[in-house]
Simulated scan of single mutants.
Amino acid sequence: MANNLRIAVIGTGRMGTDHIKRLTHRIAGADVTGVVDIDAGRAKAAAALAGGHAKVWDDPHAALSSGQYDAFVLTTPGMLHYDVLMDALDKGLPVFCEKPLTADAATAREIVDAEAGLDARLIQVGFMRRYDAGYQRLRRYFTEGSLGAPLMLHCRHRNPDPPPNFTDALMIYDSVVHEIDGVRYFTGEEITEISVRKGRATAGAHGKLSDPQQVLMRTESGVLVDVEIFVNALFGYQVHTEAVFERGIVDIGNDEGAYVRSAGHWGGEVTPGFEQRFAAAFDTELQGWVNRLRDGLPPNGPSAWDGYAAAACCEAGVEAQLEGTTVTIALGKKPTFYG
């Protein structure tokens, strides 16, 4: 494709706004020529971020039917994804869909089956950690086997503070979902069971939120995974993974950057949020998606199947939270279309 991709961003909240800035200022080969949001004021402000030339829509289906766009970036809340994705599949339009694919496993499976029925990859799901340099380095130890078989993964996911309406379920759906996808990315295996342990809650947890929690998982080959999810950690944002292999241990996500000694003090800084920690990964992710589409190729990032698998694991995780039991995860048959 000689010209830049014409992209419409559907949803102009936190992630939508961030992606508009990214596509406008840091991604080559794409122009944000449309923004969609039911909030007219917010949509106009987002259009201004794209240089003021983007058309404003209040209906995503009207934008999908307009014929004015080559591809779409979907960043609305997950409960609004299903109808938009089904419409895009019906029209043969590629969509970069921020996680979650949909709000539940059943509708996510419908998306998988609809796309597989087309025999054409159109959807890429926004699991940005797969594009982080540390994540990619760690994955090579899994795929190359130089340290022997993987045995365990120890994960820590710490946020400074959550939104006021954050719930126990959102600790799984909004936070641990990234570890769920990370486990699948590293091991190349599906997760077969999940359980959740609650203990003493921090005094900083609001309402009925039980924070922190420990999530335990097992993969098909028996790799054991434990995740500390702590959303009121206060000190900053930290994602750390330690992989235990037969002949070695690999850590990623340790605090990096300048280590300063000055005026009787020593130390460094902790990133304040996920936007800063994974800024380079977000850029690499979107640039790769744009490059594939401009070359006339289907997206090759996280697929609708990956989105469905994550949704099923999250549902099982919330069930485990509520019931206090270990929940088995059965995904059903994977369409051969996804390899």
Rank of each mutant, 00 (worst) to 15 (best):
N4T: 03
G11W: 04
G13T: 10
G16T: 11
L23S: 01
I38G: 04
D39F: 08
A40V: 10
A43N: 07
A43I: 07
A47C: 02
A47V: 01
A47R: 05
A47Q: 04
H53T: 14
V56T: 12
V56Y: 10
V56I: 13
A63C: 13
S66C: 07
Q68N: 12
Q68E: 15
Y69T: 05
T75N: 12
M79P: 00
L80Q: 11
Y82V: 04
D87M: 00
K91R: 15
L101R: 10
A105C: 07
A108H: 05
I111G: 04
V112Y: 04
L122R: 13
I123C: 04
G126Q: 08
F127R: 03
M128D: 02
Y135D: 02
Q136R: 15
L138V: 05
G145F: 10
H157Y: 13
P164H: 07
D168M: 09
S175W: 02
G182A: 05
T187S: 12
E189T: 06
E193F: 02
K198L: 11
A203V: 12
A205C: 08
S210F: 00
Q214D: 07
S221D: 08
V231W: 00
Y237P: 01
Y237K: 02
Y237H: 11
Q238I: 11
T241S: 05
V244R: 13
F245R: 03
I249C: 09
N254P: 00
A263W: 08
V270L: 14
V270F: 07
A279I: 01
A281M: 08
D283L: 12
G288W: 04
G301H: 08
A312E: 13
C314R: 00
L322F: 05
G324P: 12
V327Y: 05
T328E: 15
T328F: 10
K333F: 02
F337I: 06
F337K: 08
G339C: 04
G339S: 14
